[in-house]
Structure formats: C-alpha cells, structure tokens
C-alpha cells in the first residue's frame, strides 16, 4: 500500500441521540480509487460529509493531506476545499447559471484569469465529459446523466487532489453507468488524484476501485484490496457483497413471533 492521503482515527458522529458512526479507523491511499460501500443507512454519505468537513465529528480526528480539517476555522476550511472536488448525488448545478457558467464558477471566484483562458479551460473540461456542445443549456434542460457529467466537469475544473463521488451510479441507465466508470478511471489516471466513491452498486464500483472499505452499522467491517475483501468470511461482508436477503442484517424488522402474532398459537 502506498502512502495514505486521508487518515481517520477513532471517528464518532452522532446526530442527536442517534449514533451514526462509531469508532471509525481507516486510511485512504493516495492516488487510488477507494470505494466506501455498505447497505443503505450505514453512514457512508455521512462519512463523506465528514471528510469534506460539511459536518463536524463528535469525537476523533480526520487528517486530509496531513491537515486536521476539523480544527480549521471557516476561512481556512473554504481555502482547503478548493483542493477538493465533490460530485453530489443530484449534481447540484446552480439552476440560475448555464452549463458553461456553472463549470466556470470556481475559476471566476478563485482566480483572476483572463476571460479567454477561462473559456479554454472550461471547454477542455466540458470536452472531457462530452458536453462541449451543451455549454449554453440551462441545468433545467439537461437529463439526469448530463447533469451529473456537467457537475463532474465543475468538480474537476480546479484540478483537485481529492475527488469525492456521492452515489454516482444510482438511478442511471447502463449507458451512463458505463460512461461514468470510464470517466472516473480516466480522471484518476490523468490527474493523479485521490478518488473516493460512495456507493452500494457493488459490481460497477468494484470494477474500478483499487481499495475498498465496507461499513455496516456505523463501523468498518472490512477494508483492503477488493479481492481480499470479497474473499473475507465476515458474514456481514458476505451478505452485502452477495446480496443475500437474510443474514446478520435481518430480513424482518424486529417483531413478535409470527405465529403468536397471527394468534395461531394453539395450532
């Protein structure tokens, strides 16, 4: 394993009385694609929001590139975030700006580049995601897949060191899923950046990731190279990866005995 880019130590996060993450210890390697996987509601997206410091941990530390990001104040944090790109599940394009202006937005607020240069850079990124021709459309005119591609162009416009993908494959058709896999791979190779994919689409994610972390009930239940994790004999991991309907995660919501409930006790 190469040197790690993100180090998470003893991370706890609770929302009110509900404990969402409980004692996470994990390192995410530099320059690789890491998949964070787990069933719905296991805290994957929360972990992503903690890494990007949209949320503050209740306990524990997160170091990104050697910087403890939970100790930063608001100004330092905004600066730190310029080195991070994030692809939201909904795309989160600014609805009042065109595709071109959306992608140009980070450049306009963080650099003093001349208009010509901004134009070239934006068109290069739009070309990379195949939307150079859609530059003048408004976000409302885009399909779901195009929205995510435009959002991806915006996420990589500042050439970040870390790109986070929040459920990138959810609810998309196979063509787009294939396209996005290809894009994520290519961005990782050409920009040499660290990528984190949060997803529960096992096959799509495993085929492109170099490293994986499996979460369940707010805990890390397995991490390592995909092959080692797949061959793990942890029942949680097996149930999740093989999609078994019953196992450590029960099929039934806790309920009294079935026969008792139907008042068939005597039978």
């Amino acid at each position: 394993m190469t040197s790690s880019w993100i180090d998470i130590k003893d991370l706890n996060f609770s929302h009110g009385p509900r404990v969402i993450l409980n004692g996470i210890d994990v390192s995410i390697p530099k320059g690789k694609i890491t998949a964070i996987m787990g069933p719905s509601g296991c805290g994957k997206t929360t972990l992503l929001r903690l890494i990007s410091s949209q949320l503050k941990p209740s306990q524990g530390t997160i170091h990104v590139a050697g910087v403890d990001i939970s100790s930063l104040n608001r100004e330092q944090l905004l600066i730190q975030r310029r080195r991070m790109g994030m692809l939201f599940q909904t795309g989160a394009l600014f609805t009042d700006l065109s595709v071109f202006e959306n992608v140009a937005f980070p450049l306009r607020v963080h650099t003093d580049l001349p208009e010509r240069m901004i134009r070239d850079l934006v068109l290069m990124k739009l070309h990379a995601v195949g939307l150079r021709g859609a530059r003048d459309l408004m976000p409302a005119e885009l399909s779901g897949g195009m929205t995510r591609r435009a959002a991806l162009a915006r996420a990589i416009i500042l050439d970040p060191d870390l790109i986070m993908y929040d459920e990138p494959f959810t609810g998309q058709d196979p063509i787009f899923v294939g396209l996005l896999r290809h894009l994520i791979r290519r961005i990782n190779q050409t920009m040499a950046c660290t990528c984190i994919i949060v997803s529960h689409d096992i096959n799509e994610t495993l085929s492109i990731s170099d490293y994986m972390v499996v979460l369940a009930d707010g805990k890390v239940i397995g991490h390592g190279e995909p092959e080692t994790v797949i061959n793990s004999d942890n029942p949680h991991v097996r149930q999740f990866l093989q999609g078994l309907p019953d196992g450590p995660v029960p099929f039934h919501y806790p309920a009294p005995d079935y026969f008792q409930d139907l008042e068939l006790e005597d039978a």
Partner: peptide, 18 residues
C-alpha cells in the same frame, strides 16, 4: 430552500464559496 434541498448550497461550500 430549494437550493439547499438540491445540494446547491453544499456544492457552493465545497467549491469554497460561502
């Protein structure tokens, strides 16, 4: 509210704009 619900405010924070 809609900008918040569609993660536009969060995206803006991620870009480093308050």
């Amino acid at each position: 509210g809609l900008m918040k619900a569609t993660d536009q405010l969060a995206a803006m924070e991620m870009i480093g704009v308050d």
